[in-house]
Nucleic acid binder design. Structure first.
Length: 887
RNA sequence: GCCGCUGUGGUGGAAUGGUAGACACGUUGGACUUAAAAUCCAAUGGACCUCAAAAGUCCGUGCCGGUUCGAGUCCGGCCAGCGGUACCA
């Protein structure tokens, strides 16, 4: 007996695919329709692939293989997002050059991906750290610079004096450094910025045409944060200057009883009076050292100080006080607000805290109790002056009228504001793309394109410079250079680009990875773009996708690409959690404590992990089984020991990480692929289960047994038989279901159908080759190794070893409706919507309404219920259901 | 708080408004075996009725209500969990 042995057949086919370049994309062929299917490329970490990677990668591989079988020219590449912090931190610890670490990790990732049998075109690999790749990342930066979209500014960074370094946001936890727990302050430093705000409107508008999940579109919309309103000038008392504010509620202008400036606002110095100077300075000092998080925590009490200065409300001429407070942010709007405490919650809180006047200008609420913020139905009141009145208008109308008036009076203008801020583009790091600019005595100057790539110098030490500058700043021979044009001395920029840079355009490089005249070959770009399907984690819903769209639009504007948007369809795969864990909680004395109590308990909680034979079902949850209760020393037999059942995110610290290599060793790559898809809908979060892997593995074993019998030869049941009607029916049902499900991204139910087919086929005494061949093609996108192996065996091992012998380039079966027609139909017979019987009829009888109804009424149970009243209505749904409405 | 997503057996999950629980896991019983593993067969939402079976009855898709001959599915209002975001004027 020869059993299914994935460890024997999988390497064989992986070698066959790689060595013969079976999945090399032929991109000279323009006769076929194209399909570009893209994975979010991985960061090659030292811990290797985790089971989350193959989830999306299997889905795209299924689609890639399916599309090839349907005659598409498929572009399905992979690469490495290889710049980044971990390799640099490792270098600091061990002195190993990040390039060495990165190259090693990439080779591990490549080996692991090949061991899962993905059909990538391995001749198109891109590596963001390869000078031939980042040459073009730098080139794009220069184009941004020439377009006026890259500029320098002093921006606060997370500076940790104790560590002598600048930290990324994710390295700062509660205002302290993740490493060491040292305080982190905000220190302004010269930074490169990219003017993504110039593209805000287009980034927003063009979302409409994309086939993306609503949630992602929504997140991007929120991130861009468009709001319509007005900018209004308030004349400062005793000054020639005025304070400009942005508001979305110009209709409440009459209710503005004070103003608030951000502590950093320029006008503070202008307004502050001697009496308040000290208090204001102290407050500004405090605010500057606070972390962003502290400042923007909405739950804390409002703070602020009066400047001593006043401004004039342009609507009614009232003299109103000007305060500073950190709830007003310098980098949104104009950094100053008109405070309308009657109709804005934050202003209301502030006014109450500092005893400032609150006036009602929109009726409908009770401003003594809370701000009334309804901006649809409220009616304007108390808003009349000598030159304007908006009383009696509804809010939307009032906004228009007062904005027009402000514009006429030259006091303000209707404007649009975006939350989106410019992109802070520099990092004080070694392991990133050098920013290709130099500083001469005349200022900043981009280096010539002919000098690209600007490579990183080799260094011995990767420690931060100690000044907050990048480690590159201390490499004198690299920093000190000459301006190639003038021959004069110059200094290189020592900041490097963030990790986002390389991933902003990698999808273009795959199209022509060796093209030397630009980032992408224009002819090929026109053929392949846009990406037809892009699959990756939801964690990139905002930043990566927004940054990539921004760069793409710039490239579109300068004629490098031909599409406005890079990714036509986006799919987010859901996270895979660890195995379900059952936890019993006890306090430090070892006494049982319920999960609810454990959550709020003060003392030390002991978590006891239970195996699933120690638990049993109880009501809504699980409790400790009697035997287990005894084992853990609980004697009270009346007590129900409720336990917590849930699965957690995989993490090293929790020890619930599943390594794909282990799964492959034990069950094979096909089982891994199949299980990852069979778990549930791709987009959904779902827990891992090794038992589930066993389940799909059993399916593959059964599939093997359909084909292979004793002594490792084809089963004797297989032959060139004429297929039976029943065999054709189940085959064609499977073709239809699998096809529809792949098209619809429902890989789990496609696999169910393959299982259904197999459960039938294993019962057949005569297994027609023609049927089995089509089944193998259907199976091949999901479990390609076993499909290739069985395909080869079915052909009799005689075929030559090239592309024509691979199941991957056969053609996808077409289903025929005529085989799907059932010979009989079962009606459900309902009385008043409840099923009271079933009725089986031949296909010819089933469409005869009067016959069906007559038969249905004869069913004894149905007849009983019909006798209880008179039939007032008969619902007849052909071949499905009958419903008698009885009164 | 706001925005989004998700709530279905012991578990993962299936169900164009038409017999809820496909497929799989687990469990139970049986076959094969000296035995075990593997494999195969059968049962498996809960409760009731019954000596037992067949048949049948009631309940059941987070909760409350609505539309409909008929609702897991559509509509309105809640609740819970997850994710994003957070003083954005």
């Amino acid at each position: 007996m020869s059993e299914y042995n994935p460890s024997a057949i999988e390497p064989k086919w992986q070698n066959f695919w790689v060595e013969n370049k079976i999945f090399k994309t032929d991109d000279t062929d323009r006769s076929k329709p194209k399909f570009y299917i893209l994975d979010m490329f991985p960061y090659p970490s030292s811990s290797g692939l985790h089971v989350g990677h193959p989830e999306g990668y299997t889905a795209t591989d299924i689609v890639a293989r399916y599309k090839r079988l349907n005659g598409f020219n498929v572009l399905h590449p992979i690469g490495w997002d290889a710049f980044g912090l971990p390799a640099e931190q490792y270098a600091i610890k061990t002195g190993t050059h990040p390039r060495t670490t990165t190259q090693y990790n990439i080779s591990q990732f490549r080996r692991q991906l090949q061991a899962i049998g993905f059909s990538y075109d391995w001749d198109r690999e891109v590596d963001t750290t390869d000078p031939q790749y980042f040459k073009w990342t730098q080139w794009i930066f220069l184009q941004l610079y020439h377009q006026g979209l890259a500029y320098e500014a002093d921006k606060p960074v997370n500076w940790c004096p104790a560590l002598g370094t600048v930290l990324a946001n994710e390295e700062v936890i509660d205002g302290k450094s993740e490493v060491g727990g040292f305080p982190v302050i905000r220190k302004p430093m010269r930074q490169w910025m990219l003017k993504i705000t110039a593209y805000a409107e287009r980034l927003l508008e063009d979302l409409d045409g994309l086939d993306w999940p609503d949630s992602v579109k929504e997140m991007q919309k929120n991130w861009i944060g468009k709001s319509m309103g007005a900018e209004i000038k308030f004349q400062a008392v005793g000054s020639v200057k005025s304070i400009e504010v942005f508001t979305t509620r110009p209709d409440t202008l009459f209710g503005a009883t004070y103003m608030v400036l951000a502590p950093e606002h320029d006008m503070v110095d202008e307004l502050v009076t001697d009496e308040f100077r000290n208090a204001v300075e102290t407050y500004r000092q405090d605010a500057s050292t606070k972390s962003d998080q502290d400042r923007t925590d909405a739950r804390k009490k409002k703070t602020g100080v009066f400047t001593g200065g006043y401004a004039i409300n342009p609507a009614n001429g009232a003299k109103i006080p000007v305060w500073i407070a950190d709830y007003v942010l310098i980098n949104y709007g104009t950094g100053a607000i008109m405070a309308v405490p009657g109709h804005d919650e934050r202003d209301w809180e502030f006014a109450v805290a500092f005893n400032l006047p609150i006036v009602e200008v929109v009726s409908g609420g009770d401003i003594l109790k809370a701000a009334y913020t309804d901006n649809e139905n409220g009616i304007i009141v108390n808003s009349t002056s000598d030159s304007i009145s908006i009383d009696g208008l509804k809010v939307p109308e009032a906004k228009k009228v007062i904005t027009r008036w402000l514009e006429e009076q030259n006091l303000g203008i209707g404007t649009v504001n975006y939350k989106l801020r410019d992109w802070l583009f520099s990092r004080q790091r070694y392991w990133g793309e050098p920013i290709p600019v130099i500083r001469t005595k005349n200022g900043v100057k981009p280096i010539s394109e002919s000098l690209l790539p600007l490579e990183l110098p080799d260094v011995e030490k990767f420690e931060p410079s100690g000044t907050g500058e990048s480690p590159l700043a201390v490499i004198d021979e690299w920093v000190n250079t000459i301006d190639q044009e003038t021959g004069e001395p110059a200094m290189r920029e020592t900041n490097t680009m963030p990790q986002w840079a390389g991933s902003c355009w990698y999808y273009l490089r795959y199209i022509s990875p060796n093209y030397e005249l630009g980032p992408v070959d224009p002819e090929k770009e026109k053929y392949w773009m846009p990406v037809d399907m892009y699959v990756g984690g939801a964690e990139h819903a905002v930043l990566h996708l927004l940054y990539a769209r921004f760069w793409h639009k710039v490239l579109y504007d300068i004629g490098v690409v031909s599409t406005k948007e890079p990714f036509q369809r986006l799919v987010n795969q859901g996270m895979i959690l660890g195995e379900m864990e059952y936890t019993l909680f006890t306090d430090e004395s070892g006494a049982y404590i319920s999960p609810d109590a454990a959550e709020v308990a003060d003392g030390e909680i002991v978590r006891v992990k239970l195996s699933d034979d120690e638990i049993e079902k109880s009501g809504f949850g699980f409790k400790l089984s009697g035997a287990a209760a005894k084992k853990y020393g609980f004697s009270d037999s009346n007590m129900e020991y409720i336990i917590e059942a849930r699965s957690y995110k995989m993490s090293k610290s929790r020890g619930n990480v599943i390594n794909p290599d282990d799964v492959i060793t034990e069950y094979g790559a096909d089982s891994l692929r199949l299980y990852e898809m069979f778990m549930g809908p791709l987009e959904q979060v779902k827990p891992w289960s090794m038992r589930g892997v066993e389940g799909v593995s059993r399916f593959l074993k059964r599939t093997w047994r359909v084909f292979v019998g004793e002594n490792d030869v084809l089963n004797t049941e297989i032959g060139d038989y004429e297929p039976s009607k029943a065999q054709l029916k189940v085959l064609h049902e499977t073709i239809k279901k699998v096809t529809d499900d792949i098209e619809g991204g429902r890989y789990n139910t496609a696999i169910s159908q393959l299982m259904i087919f197999n459960n039938e086929a294993i019962k057949w005494d005569q297994r027609p080759k023609s049927i089995l061949k089509e089944f193998l093609i259907l199976l091949s996108p999901f479990a390609p190794h076993i499909a290739e192996e069985l395909w080869e065996r079915l052909q009799g091992n005689t075929v030559s070893k090239d592309i024509t012998s691979s199941v991957a380039y056969t053609s996808w079966p077409q289903f025929d409706e005529k085989y799907l027609v059932a010979e009989s139909f079962t009606y459900a017979i309902q009385v008043n919507g409840k099923v009271r019987g079933t009725l089986q009829l031949s296909a010819s009888d089933a469409d005869d309404k009067s016959l069906v109804l007559e038969q249905a009424k004869k069913d004894p149970t149905v007849a009983k219920y019909l006798a209880e009243g008179t039939v007032v209505k008969e619902i007849f749904v052909p071949r499905k259901i009958i419903n008698f409405v009885v009164k």
